[in-house]
Simulated assay, not measured.
Amino acid sequence: MAEESKSPIKFLRDVGREMKRVTWPTRQELVKYTGVVLATVLFVTVFFALVDQGLSYLVRTFLQ
């Protein structure tokens, strides 16, 4: 089984062809998805901060 070696030029042409076939999101979809991602990151950050504070409190209570 021989490996086909592609030239960098052919590779970039193939990439360009594939990029034209991609269905890109509209601006409105992009803004909506960005809001969802930011809200999720904020929620996870607050959740883990609260869990961290709670566990820290428990550890300090048991060690005293």
Rank of each mutant, 00 (worst) to 15 (best):
F47H: 03
M1I: 13
L42W: 05
Y57M: 15
Q53K: 14
Y33N: 03
V51K: 06
S7K: 03
L30S: 06
V15Q: 01
E29D: 11
R17A: 05
L55G: 01
T34D: 06
W24C: 09
V15E: 01
R13Y: 06
L38F: 12
A2G: 05
V41Y: 03
F62K: 12
D52G: 15
R27N: 07
G35V: 01
R60P: 02
G35H: 01
S56A: 12
T45H: 02
V59S: 12
R13D: 03
E29R: 05
R21D: 13
L63P: 00
L63A: 11
G35S: 08
L42S: 07
E4W: 04
M1D: 07
E29T: 10
A2H: 08
M1N: 09
L42P: 00
L58G: 13
E3G: 09
L12G: 08
E4G: 01
A39Y: 06
L58D: 13
Q28V: 11
S7L: 01
V22W: 08
V51R: 09
A49W: 09
A39K: 06
F47T: 00
T34L: 04
T45W: 04
F48R: 08
F47Y: 11
L38H: 04
E29C: 06
P8R: 01
A49D: 05
L12C: 12
V44Y: 00
E29I: 05
W24S: 08
R60M: 11
S56K: 10
A49L: 13
T45L: 03
L55K: 07
F62S: 13
K20F: 07
S56G: 13
Q64V: 15
V31L: 09
W24L: 14
R13S: 07
L58E: 13
R21C: 04
V51L: 14
P8S: 03
S7N: 06
Y57R: 14
V37I: 14
Q64F: 08
L50M: 12
E4K: 08
Y57V: 15
P25M: 02
S7M: 01
Y33T: 02
T40K: 02
M19Y: 04
G16V: 10
V41K: 02
T26V: 04
T23E: 09
K20S: 02
L12W: 09
D14C: 01
P8L: 06
V59G: 06
D52W: 14
R21H: 12
F43K: 00
V44E: 00
K32V: 12
Q28E: 15
R60G: 07
L12A: 14
M19P: 02
Y57L: 15
V36K: 04
A49H: 02
V37D: 01
E3K: 09
Y33Q: 12
V46C: 05
E4A: 05
L63H: 05
M19V: 12
D52R: 13
L63S: 09
G54A: 09
V31R: 01
F62P: 04
